[in-house]
Design a protein around this nucleic acid. Structure first.
Length: 886
RNA sequence: GGAGUCAUAGCUCAGCUGGGACGAGCGUUCGCUUGACGUGCGAAAGGUCAUGGGUUCGAACCCCUUUGACUCCACCA
């Protein structure tokens, strides 16, 4: 079978084909297998309305790396995928689409609307899934779930009924955040506070039955239509005589009491506050304390209702203007100040939220949250990076009841049924046929649906079959890691944690890995309105999924935001190309030879031992980094190893052996190349799944690797004590330093590569001489040497030879006519200055009695060794310099 | 009003639990058709690790000050 890699790396040629192969072979699928340890990740379900953006790409790359790593390590790795119905986001989109067709929600009714919504889901819900596949995500697609599928819906109903029966869910009329555009209630978490420039209107309220006024200050004059009191601080000396009296509410012309409440800040404004219990959360609390009437003055679209008298029908801002105008005409407007304050906006549509009193369903949080707090405090759930714990606790410490009902149609309908005959409320998983109190068969289901996060809170166990006691649940739950952005810590992470404890009696996951946001090159959030978003699919199209993945996880610390640069993608594509070509080169050579399955260790040269040792260390480090979620560091190490150590040094060192059929060590070189390449590919696979698979499989067909099949199910490399050759690592490092020195001299002296020269190595150390003698062959190609002579002393070195000094040896290169004496003096002088600096530093340290007495022995020994090294080098450099100066 | 993050080479960032910044990529300069790769190879220039103090034998890293940028939370009307 003839098979080889294409001449140039073209991701498009391989990615789609390989993904299909993985799917066809069912490699992503995980079944319960008690003989293996499970490793489970549940995907943060993307919205069915969604299109893959950079945030998804990052999030899913991280998960895929962890899953592929663990799968190779032999775990039974399950990556549970699915999508979220995203109630409000989807509903808004469908309404928009309908509007274009001139249809309103009411025209088609609830059922008609839901039919459309399911059609929408069928049409667009799969789009993001296919995009995740382009990224290489190894999700178990057979298990794909949807937050509104039968199983998840069943779980939702079960949880609702259970929490209701246990007294955690209740219905109540409370002040909630109302979005007048979406016309639904929203939770506190969905309100974004934006600083806005506004005004502070100072208004006079006449004191009833007397003359005089109190001056109040407000940012929202229109709400005065609903004022039912005026409040002062109980200890405010200025207003003591007012407490208990009444003032006349202007425009409305009715008397309202002056009450005393500690909520009022004496220092702020005038110290007198108008109280509108129906349209301000604080006033609502004050109203409850003082038994004040709650007058709702607004309709659901934030126009003024009939309680607003002549302002009825006006929009809230129109009414504001008109009311200010009237107050001015009445002579009751004292002044208008500029005032910037925070205004709550709906995070979806950015409309200013209106606090309103509405009957809604709530989850009582104070007890439910306790185990979730304890879990993080005790370390049972680990948050990475740690600093996000503070954000977590900040929220849990100030937790308020969760408003879960929404006045929307797309979502899980609340399983509560009302009997209009006797007023009974029945909460039940199945629709009751009749009222259990009065027997009425005409029951009416609650119109509201649940907050979309209510169902995603159950995701880690509802996807595994809960409420049924399934094998899957028993085996895969609790899951191992949750990977997500820090922006949904309140919406989702906390709610999953408390839900896990409430319904499973166990944590949903052991670790939470937070990542940052992907920003544009100027550090701005990518957003539709700015038009600065970069489509991951475009990146994949141009540079391949492997390059994109690598870009997203390198050069960035965990939890920090990162900027997206095309240049970085290109650099990583270049790396992929490097891997590709290095592999081609190795294959070209393997093809012509008989590859040994195993090698006699005696045949390995210094260089072989060196690279084996290096790759061995790499395996250990990368594994450690992955275990501790330092994915970027792991990737960087693999990159450096492959490019620098393996390609630039080892492959170059080995070339002379490959080109020489007489060389006894050729077989060892081939074996080592193959061995290290396979190991590198495996380490790289979780990061760059496609290219590694393509190369691995090609290599397999060519050479017959023992391990058959896909790299994604091959075994993860482990540290091999047999390949730990520390001594050889040192010798090659000496050779590398010598080669670098030679290259540097040649470059500085402008000696063209075509000009070969003799290299004389001088050392009085026998071991060093051995190392150089053994490595002579490297200098021909790497150091442009025509000949290498290793000797004990400086005899026979020509007068005009230039030199490079490394700690272990002096290296002389006679260039004769090419030598520019002044340049060499300049170079040596620079070197001397550098060494002087080093010596000064080392001597300084060693001369410090405190250092010598307090620093650890090893550190002192290290510095002493350096002193000797630099002293020796200085001696050689000085001698050389004197030689030319005289 | 709280809390957090960041300030390191021209640009974007790494630097793990304190021990010389061989920092990385891009960019810049110089030189290379070296039989895998110019999506490449070799060499080089470039940093007061924001500021001021403290702890320490030793600080980019720990503590405090200041300045600047960003983010989250928060009911001051």
């Amino acid at each position: 079978m003839e098979k080889e890699l294409a001449k140039t790396y073209n991701p498009k040629d391989i990615e789609e084909k390989l993904y299909q192969k993985w799917v066809d072979n069912n490699y992503f699928h995980a079944e319960v297998d008690r003989s293996k340890k499970p490793f489970t990740i549940v995907i943060p379900p993307p919205n069915i309305t969604g299109q893959l953006h950079m945030g998804h790409a990052l999030d899913n790359t991280l998960q895929d790396i962890l899953i592929r790593f663990k799968r190779m390590q032999g775990y039974n790795a399950l990556w549970q995928p699915g999508t979220d119905h995203a109630s409000i986001a989807t509903e808004v989109k469908i309404i928009e689409q309908m509007r274009e067709e001139g249809i309103e929600k009411e025209d088609i009714g609830r059922e008609g609307f839901l039919e459309r919504a399911w059609q929408w889901k069928d049409e667009y819900g799969g789009r993001i899934i296919s995009q995740l596949k382009k990224l290489g995500s190894s999700c178990d697609w057979e298990r794909e779930r949807f937050t509104m599928d039968d199983g998840c819906s069943h779980a939702v109903n079960k949880v609702f009924v259970k929490l209701y029966k246990d007294g955690y869910i209740y219905k109540g009329s409370k002040i909630i955040n109302w979005c007048p555009v979406c016309e639904t209630s929203i939770s506190d978490a969905e309100v974004e506070h934006e600083e806005q420039a506004g005004h502070f209107w100072h208004i006079k309220y006449p004191i009833a039955g007397g003359d005089g006024y109190v001056e109040i200050a407000t940012t929202r004059p229109e709400t005065m239509l609903g004022d039912t009191a005026v409040a002062v601080h109980p200890e405010d000396e200025r207003y003591q005589d007012l407490i208990g009296k009444k003032v006349i509410l202007p425009i409305v012309n009715k008397e309202i009491p002056v009450i005393a409440d500690k909520y009022v800040d004496k220092e702020f404004g005038t110290g007198v506050v108008k109280i509108t219990p129906a349209h301000d959360p604080n006033d609502f609390e004050v109203g409850k304390r003082h038994n004040l009437e709650e007058i709702n003055i607004m309709n659901d679209d934030a126009t003024i209702n009939d309680n607003g008298g002549k302002y009825s029908g006006m929009d809230r801002y129109e009414a504001r203007k008109a009311i200010v105008k009237e107050l001015e005409e009445l002579g009751l407007l004292v002044k208008i100040e500029e005032h910037s304050h925070n205004v709550g906006a709906h995070d979806r549509c950015h409309a200013t939220v209106e606090p309103m009193i509405k009957p809604q369903w709530f989850v009582k949080m104070d007890d439910l949250i306790k185990p979730a707090v304890e879990a993080v405090k005790s370390g049972e759930i680990e948050i990475i990076p740690e600093r996000f714990e503070k954000i977590y606790f900040n929220w849990t410490d100030n937790i308020r009841d969760w408003c879960i009902s929404r006045q929307l149609w797309w979502g899980h309908r609340i399983p509560a049924y009302y009997c209009d005959t006797c007023g009974e409320v029945i909460v039940s998983e199945e629709e009751p046929s009749r009222c259990h109190v009065c027997g009425n068969t005409e029951l009416r289901q609650d119109e509201d649906t649940l907050d979309t996060w209510f169902s995603s809170a159950l995701w880690p166990f509802s996807t595994l079959g809960w409420p049924d006691k399934t094998e899957d649940l028993d085996y895969f739950y609790p899951t191992d890691v949750l990977v997500t952005g820090y922006d949904i810590i309140f919406f989702w992470v906390i709610r999953m944690i408390f839900s896990g404890y409430a319904h499973m009696g166990e944590k949903p996951f052991s670790k939470v890995l937070f990542h940052g946001l992907v920003r544009d090159s100027q550090g701005r959030k990518m957003s539709k309105s700015l038009g600065n978003g970069i489509d991951p699919l475009e990146v994949i199209d141009k540079y391949g999924a492997d390059a994109l993945r690598f870009t997203l996880i390198t050069g960035n610390a965990p939890g920090n935001d990162m900027r997206f640069y095309w240049e970085r993608v290109e650099a990583n594509r270049n790396f992929a190309n490097k891997v590709w070509n290095a592999s081609r080169f190795i294959m070209m050579n393997l093809e012509k030879a008989d590859l040994q399955e195993d090698i006699n260790k005696e045949l390995l040269t210094q260089a072989d031992r060196w690279i084996l040792s290096k790759s061995n260390t790499l395996v250990k480090e990368v594994t450690d980094n992955l275990e501790t979620f330092e994915l970027g560091i792991a990737a960087q190490k693999i990159y450096d190893f492959i490019w620098e150590e393996f390609c630039d040094w080892y492959i170059e060192m080995v070339k002379p052996r490959l080109y020489n059929d007489e060389d006894d060590s050729k077989v060892a070189a081939l074996w080592t190349l193959n061995h290290v390449l396979i190991k590198s590919l495996k380490l790289l696979h979780p990061f760059m799944p496609f290219i590694t698979e393509e190369i691995y499989c090609t290599l397999q067909e060519m050479t017959g690797i023992k391990e058959k099949g896909s790299i994604m199910i091959s075994s993860w490399p482990t540290f091999n004590p047999d390949q730990d050759f520390a001594k050889d690592t040192e010798s090659i490092e000496i050779i590398k330093a010598a080669v670098k020195g030679i290259r540097n001299v040649r470059s500085e002296m402008n000696v063209p590569p075509s000009r070969k020269a003799t290299v004389l190595v001088v050392s009085d150390n026998e071991r060093i001489r051995e190392i150089f003698t053994e490595s002579k062959v490297f200098f021909a190609t790497l150091g442009f040497a025509s000949e290498v002579i290793v000797q004990t002393d400086k005899s026979g070195i020509s007068e005009d030879a230039v030199s490079t000094i490394i700690p272990e040896a002096q290296i002389y290169i006679p260039f004769a006519d090419l030598v520019d004496l002044d340049k060499e003096i300049e170079r040596l002088t620079k070197e001397k200055a550098r060494l002087e600096g080093e010596l000064k530093r080392v001597n300084g340290m060693l001369a410090n009695p405190n250092f010598v007495s307090k620093a650890p022995e090893s550190k002192i020994a290290e510095e002493k060794a350096k002193l000797k090294k630099y002293t020796d080098m200085m001696e050689q450099v000085t001698e050389r310099l004197n030689h030319f100066m005289k």
